[in-house]
Write a protein that binds this DNA or RNA. Structure first.
Lengths: 192, 192
DNA sequence: AATTTATCCTGACATCGTCAAGATTGGATA
DNA sequence: TATCCAATCTTGACGATGTCAGGATAAATT
């Protein structure tokens, strides 16, 4: 029988994964800090020492989300052709991949005012994600206009947002290969 | 000096506008039913009789939002050329108009799980908005594919979501005429 | 005029986030 | 190795929130 030690060991990361689980289970608006603490097997005031307050925890979680977001994009880009256009489409596919795989996290990152985006950590990874898209578009059109960047971003983001929210089921419900083909074609239209 | 009558008179609509004001002021996640009641000058339990619970109020508010959404689209369509393509672009411009004019309501309608979308009223207006887009696309291409519908919706929704959230400021900050021109061009790309 | 119904209020309860104060542990210092 | 300090975690409390039960008031109906 294992007795619980007073010190957790790695409570910070345990709270982060517990928070994401609670977020996926209850939704952002019913998110409860005390439930997160209970899920991590710790008292209700324990998170304060690692994250300050509830928004601090969500800020750290959102930052972690942006890192995984970039990782999923990179995974798509690695297996795609190395042409600028194929890389841009791969980035869009990764955008949708993340939104579908972690819808709760996606919402926290894009449709919530609780994370503090002016924090050094979260601010950096968020603008880094934006800069990546920017350079991907510039690689296709060196003289890219505002419309070019807006079209690419809006298309990828719109697809990701609608599909992760359960809309556009006619696309989300497709077999993976066809689904990716449709997404690739839609994103391709944005850059013509 | 006017004394407060026991019965409000039109508390239901007063609560709806108070709720939208609170939503715009505090954000969805800090939305408080008691604050709404206080703003309407009524006790904290008064809303229950008209909307059941807090989610009921937000459900009614979201339904009202979808009606105003369609109204803004109709306003754009009325002044646009009557060609199917111009009508489709007008619908997209109205989409963005609404998101920029009422960002809090837009978020409630698209990025919240609190409104009950399986309610007859909200369900009807929400699917009506979707059907309108569907017929607008079909008017251009009678044999419209899944990609056609997805591209149109994702582009308009992505622009609206990003711009209302403060992103894409390079487009949102433009003078109105140029702004509309850029949006029209981006939406036009989705249907090629 | 009497009664029924709709509307609104008061009071209570469990739950929430946060703060203050104390208990426990690990690590640094000597 | 012994001691002290800082980090970590717990307990208890406070005000605020959503919801429910029961009562008060006004309007509508009969």
């Amino acid at each position: 029988m294992e007795t619980k030690p007073y010190h957790h060991g790695d409570l910070r990361s345990a709270l982060l994964s517990a928070a994401e689980a609670e977020l996926a289970l209850r939704g952002i608006e019913a998110f409860s800090l005390r439930s997160v603490a209970k899920r991590a097997g710790v008292s209700h005031a324990a998170p304060a020492h690692h994250f300050g307050d509830a928004n601090g925890l969500l800020t750290a979680l959102a930052a972690e989300g942006f890192r995984q977001f970039r990782a999923m994009q990179a995974a798509r880009e690695a297996v795609a052709d190395k042409t600028p256009r194929a890389q841009m489409i791969a980035a869009g596919l990764g955008y949708v991949d993340f939104a579908m795989a972690r819808p709760a996290l996606f919402r926290l990152m894009h449709s919530s005012d609780r994370p503090a985006f002016d924090t050094p950590d979260l601010g950096a990874v968020a603008t880094a994600a934006y800069e990546h898209l920017r350079t991907a578009v510039a690689a296709i059109k060196p003289e890219a206009s505002i419309a070019d960047l807006g079209a690419a971003w809006a298309t990828a983001h719109g697809l990701a947002d609608l599909m992760s929210a359960g809309r556009l089921h006619s696309i989300a419900g497709l077999p993976v290969a066809e689904r990716d083909a449709v997404i690739a074609e839609i994103i391709g239209r944005a850059l013509t």
